[in-house]
Amino acid sequence: MRLVCIVCPNSCLLEVEKTDAGVKVTGNKCKRGITFAIEEVTAPKRSLTTTVRTVFENFPVAPVRTNGEIPKEKIPAVMAYLKTVVADKRYKAGDVICGNVLDTGVDIIITIDMDQEG
């Protein structure tokens, strides 16, 4: 099957073949493409970027992201969970606001210094 690698903006067109020996990948410009292809056909993962609410009027929402990838099918559950998370202090970019979100082994980190005007 054909897949487009989404690891980086190069968007390599990958040819993925399932054989007895495992998964064979061609078309990748770097080795991250192989990992991506294998995961994509077995257990697809995505990083998630969104916002969380804050208690600050001039900074109503703060941007966050997963600091690794989570199973694709868990995105709705993580989004639902993040509805309940509120940033109640002025976090810095990189600070963890929510560790090991929904037992994915991945943290939710703030991606901006919140000590600025909104």
């Binding site: 916002t51 969380v52 609410r53 929402v61 995105i75 709705p76 989004m79 993040l82 509805k83």
Partner: peptide, 10 residues
């Protein structure tokens, strides 16, 4: 407001 509604997107 974001995070408060679901219009069937997800």
């Amino acid at each position: 407001y974001t995070k408060e509604v679901d219009y069937g997107g997800l």
